[in-house]
């Protein structure tokens, strides 16, 4: 464990909690892409099946359970409890355009053709593009609630911090995982446009609105 990975995990946890609280407190999931949340629930489910097979540490186990629990709670709030506030018209990204290619790639490019390893690889690739429906939705509506931008900021920051974690681990432990690194770079690049808008607008107290 190193400072980059710890702050990365805490940033990820903060993002997940911010989103859950936003939906719960405002009793509305306006502006939130339910499809991205389904993808995140799928990412955690396929990545954390090793909860059933191996124990790494209490921290590891507890964080995985929190992530999975919050992901499914968020999907439940969006599609069941506050379904009336779900903006399905703007959340129109075709999930099959992500899941099918990612599934195929996971079968072609992986470290080991075993069940858990393929699922882990699938979850790594899927996570790198899971935010696309949400970013697509914001580009369609042309704006995002400020609390949603904070959610996206911490979510994007977490994987950026993981990039530093991997540099650290390569330098000090000689460990590196090319699949996780390449997917992490892609994932972080997808946020660059948003990061620019977040820093130049939201941090200056303006609302995040895309040029119509």
């Amino acid at each position: 464990m190193n400072i980059f990975r710890l702050t990365g995990d805490l940033s990820h946890l903060a993002a997940i909690i911010i989103l859950l609280l936003k939906i719960w407190k405002t009793r509305s999931c306006a502006g939130i892409s339910g499809k991205s949340q389904i993808l995140f629930a799928l990412v955690f489910t396929t990545r954390y099946l090793d909860l059933l097979t191996s124990f790494i540490s209490f921290y590891n186990t507890i964080m995985k359970l929190i992530y999975i629990g919050c992901a499914y709670a968020t999907v439940y709030l969006i599609y069941m409890k506050f379904k009336a506030t779900y903006d399905g018209n703007h959340d129109s990204f075709r999930l099959e355009f992500l899941v099918v290619p990612v599934g195929g790639l996971a079968c072609l490019v992986n470290h080991d053709f075993s069940f858990l390893e393929i699922l882990w690889t699938f979850s790594i690739y899927l996570e790198s593009v899971a935010i696309l429906p949400q970013l697509f939705m914001i580009s369609k509506t042309g704006e995002a609630e400020t609390i949603t931008t904070h959610y996206l900021f911490f979510l994007g920051l977490y994987r950026a911090l993981y990039l530093f974690n991997w540099i650290w681990r390569f330098y000090f432990e000689g460990f590196f995982d090319m699949i996780a690194i390449v997917a992490g770079v892609v994932q972080t690049i997808l946020y660059c446009d948003f990061f620019y808008l977040y820093v130049t607008k939201v941090l200056k107290g303006k609302k995040l609105s895309l040029p119509a």
Partner: peptide
């Protein structure tokens, strides 16, 4: 560098 062993990252 066999990375399939330690999946200790979240």
């Amino acid at each position: 560098l066999d990375s399939t062993t330690d999946k200790d990252e979240l």
